[in-house]
Design a binder for these strands. Structure first.
Lengths: 349, 349
DNA sequence: ATTTAGCACTCGTTGTTCATGAGTGCTAAC
DNA sequence: GTTAGCACTCATGAACAACGAGTGCTAAAT
């Protein structure tokens, strides 16, 4: 109740210092930190009692918590938030990290999926947390070439190649009414008129621009509507690449099976995960505990970094770990790794 | 030491009965079963003491084990083996199961991958164990059509469509020396000559049969070798579909984190899993504990059923659970589910 | 010759008590 | 403003007893 006449907004130098030391210690040892422990540091000149007073204040301000009445303190969510926003030792020192991670990539990769897979693996190996790469949405890529290859009188497979070399394919039912020659014409028209259009937009472009062309060239245009919809109606097509899925199990805070089960279930749930690691922001973002807005993540933090291709944000690489994460190490690592990914992606041509 | 003058090979009716009852009970309650428990069953006329004698004999024969000197008995691996081979109530009763599982498929599926995915999910939902579908090896499918689509002057994407409608694709580096017209000719020759050949055999067939044709038609055949190898050298391409990956966590025998961790790690290791669920045998097979030949599986059983297409065995659907599995339920379920898969696959055309 | 009752014995489980020690908050002195 | 001192809290772990489910063995009953 003593210091801090400025209310919530301002902390004394000493408070900042103690808060940082405490969180550093807790991140390292995963045990409530007491006044004695802090006072034993060589760069601390105050007695445990003084520190106790400061700790009590920091607790009142919401940065710290106790696990029981006479325990040491642990950081609260707000504490971590403050730590990440204001107390993190400056992040620029870390170029040696990148050199190391660069080495871990196998020689030359020219397929994006392999790159994503490797990145996720490297990241989880380096951190012992769980990593996820959210791949680019194939539907945002531009059509390079499409083709329909008949399998039988009724079935065919439709193939879409994007400018990035990604291949989307789906099996489709051919309408009875369609003639082979019409099918061929259709494919030709699509290739001529729609090359360079994003896959997701193909359908609407057809309705807007190509109705006339179709009417002119195709015999059975009336019955074609359903077929075209089947051909071009996409479901979401993002892909997740995981690394270290079971690393959660080695985190002391998840020693308990009942704690870890919802977590692992969460990791397996595609749409929740996509939502979790999707981010429109550039650079590295940190979401702590309940900021992730899902019960299963209440004790986890998610660090998110976006990678780009030709300057466009196309996906993210993320790390999921306990709220007590090695933020310093991890943020700089993620920063350089995402940049490395961007570099390699742009090398693809 | 009394009964069983016939040595290992023969058990008395009463021993068989007691063994079956005990294993049934253990499977249900996951707790060592004592003589009293068995004697309390209404269809048992013997006293606990008598049963104790039998249990001691069954233990001597290796079918049962004790967890400590004065505990009840649990089945040994040999016990389970015997139970599965000789004591399982006849398996044919179970057609109601299949009806139910049939209902769980969403209406009409015409893409194999979706079918596999659904099958795995249904199986794990129905059993609360972990299920795996080993998809067909795409490389065993026959070439329907191939194509090479240039992305840039150096890169192209090669696409192979199989008779089953599956699409394999890979990005390739174009050799400097190749001319567009030669590339086109190459593709034409491959399509004409190699349609119907299994993907895995493409490369050898080229070397055996097409060398001459190439020499005649292509200008730069000498430098083509590396390119063809790059184009047609496959890495293994089986795919696993999982259901209920975390179900292991709810099995009481794996309450312990240190027990479950190696298991989950095992599940995530592609090649180990492929080996585990690969089986050349038709029908349903059961592997118990160490029969699976991997440390992490020492306390697990794997039930394996193969599905076929046009009479050919092309993949498996498997269930992984604790050695104490509900074998009866699970075997018949797997049997009908694999048959259902076979049916649906053959409906594809 | 089986079967069974009786009994001593084993051992895991549960709950109690107790000592320990790391931590706190508060007060009074520095 | 700082710190020493002290009473108090609470988690942890060890020691111990009571309990009960189970066993094996022996001797009596069938």
């Amino acid at each position: 109740m003593s210091a801090n006449k400025w209310g919530d907004g301002m902390l004394t130098e000493r408070q900042l210092f103690i808060l940082r030391v405490l969180i550093d210690d807790y991140i390292k040892h995963v045990e409530p930190v007491g006044s004695r422990t802090i006072s034993k540091r060589e760069d601390i000149t105050y007695s445990p009692a003084t520190i106790r007073n400061e700790l009590a204040d920091l607790e009142d301000l919401g940065f710290l918590e106790k696990t029981h009445t006479s325990s040491g303190r642990i950081p609260s969510e707000k504490g971590y938030r403050f730590y990440v926003d204001h107390l993190l030792p400056s992040l620029s020192v870390s170029h040696n990290k990148m050199d190391r991670s660069e080495l871990l990539f196998t020689e030359k990769v020219h397929e994006a999926e392999v790159l994503f897979d490797q990145s996720a693996r490297i990241l989880s190996d380096l951190t012992n947390y769980t990593s996820v790469v959210l791949g680019p949405n194939a539907l945002d890529m531009k059509l390079r070439h499409m083709q329909i290859i008949p399998l039988s009188s009724q079935m065919a497979v439709a193939i879409f190649v994007t400018n990035t070399g990604h291949v989307e394919n789906r099996q489709i039912l051919l309408p009875d009414s369609i003639e082979p020659s019409d099918l061929e014409k259709l494919v030709n028209i699509l290739n001529e008129r729609l090359a360079g259009v994003r896959l997701i937009e193909l359908n609407s472009r057809i309705h807007l621009e190509l109705a006339d062309v179709f009417k002119k060239n195709l015999k059975n245009y009336q019955n074609m509507g359903v077929f075209l919809d089947q051909l071009l109606l996409w479901s979401k097509k993002e892909k997740l690449f995981y690394g270290g899925k079971t690393n959660m199990l080695s985190q002391p805070e998840f020693r308990d099976l009942d704690k870890v089960r919802p977590l692992l279930d969460f990791l397996e749930t595609q749409d929740l995960m996509e939502k979790l690691v999707s981010s429109s922001e550039k650079g590295v973002t940190v979401k702590i505990g309940t900021e992730n807005e899902h019960e299963a993540m209440r004790n986890c933090s998610v660090i998110n970094a976006s990678y780009t291709m030709h300057g466009k944000h196309i996906g993210t690489i993320s790390l999921i770990g306990p709220t007590r994460m090695e933020y310093k190490k991890v943020i700089s690592l993620l920063d350089s790794l995402s940049k490395e990914m961007t570099n390699r992606l742009n090398d693809f041509s």
